[in-house]
Design a binder for these strands. Structure first.
Lengths: 164, 164
DNA sequence: CATATATGTCAACATTGCTGACGTAGTTTA
DNA sequence: TAAACTACGTCAGCAATGTTGACATATATG
């Protein structure tokens, strides 16, 4: 593949640029989750368990319904992993005060420990990438990823705060 | 969650910054693959088929071994989807010339059409995000994603070319 | 009281990973 | 040339995680 072809054909360059982006997303996401997957294995958990632990850790006391909405999976799918996490003492369910139909979700201290262990492995990777890339790059990273995401509102507020 | 807490505690801000990155990766990746998943469904294919079609389209004539290495899956896992793609006429296998043990992989014209249809849906999303974010942001996006990836060499050359 | 909502459960199925075992054709090497 | 290695394929079974559809229970709400 010659330089001539690249320089002569701007459309080729553009296609390659988009291919690079797609591959970066694929490989980066795979490596990003890879380390945590290893930790989870030792607990006989999978990535689905991780997501539940992550989001409950981020917003303790959230309802099952809210969690379903964030994860965009069916209650039957969630039920399988959630029951395991509750049975094995990583997550605690408390009946809602306002609405007693709700089973609000909290991490137990055991759950918190696992959450931190998992987050640490991923945070380290992100932090290192951020450090190497520099502040401007971090800003661009966020801008582009937000552009790729459907529900951008989800991040708008926090992103604005971080811009300061 | 008050501004006071944020301003008073830089560690809190940092944690939130890393959380934002993790969630952006999660949601962006999901939405990035979502559209293509829909198209694949109409062919009774899954994301694994997409990956095969994508990488064979990018490097026609690659060997099964090379593909296995890129995908990091077992030959048994690949076999399932690859056989389907060959049986249904999306991919063609030709015996290698130098090494007749190899079954080199090519997209048929049917396969190319599907590849383009799938890529188009994802390219459009990336291109739009790039356009909104601007050139500097794109550069930062690539820098950070490369930092997150393990085998950075994979992208080094192309990335350098695009920097010009 | 009737209806809607939040949650849970049972059953069946699809996709896509994995391991282990075995086979065949073709290449390399001692 | 015979032995060993390599590329590829296949069969069988298992696990994780997503799906649909049906049904049940407790609670809220108009």
């Amino acid at each position: 593949m010659s330089d001539i072809k690249r320089r002569a054909n701007p459309l080729f360059l553009r296609e390659e640029e988009l291919r690079l982006a797609m591959e970066l997303l694929f490989f980066a996401y795979r490596d990003f989750t890879g380390e945590a997957d290893g930790i989870l294995e030792s607990y006989n958990f999978g990535r689905a368990h991780h997501r539940v632990i992550y989001f409950v850790g981020r917003e303790p006391g959230m309802s099952v319904k809210d969690l379903l909405h964030i994860l965009s999976i069916t209650k039957q799918s969630l039920s399988r992993v959630l029951s395991q996490l509750v049975d094995e003492g990583f997550i605690e369910q408390r009946t809602g005060v306002n609405d007693r139909r709700q089973r609000l979700l909290y991490l137990t201290s055991k759950g918190q420990k696992l959450e931190q262990q998992l987050s640490k492995s991923q945070s380290r990777r992100i932090a290192e990438a951020y450090r190497l890339a520099g502040a401007d790059a971090v800003d661009g990273f966020r801008k582009v990823l937000m552009g790729i995401t459907d529900e951008k509102e989800r991040f708008a507020q926090l992103n604005d705060d971080l811009q300061d």
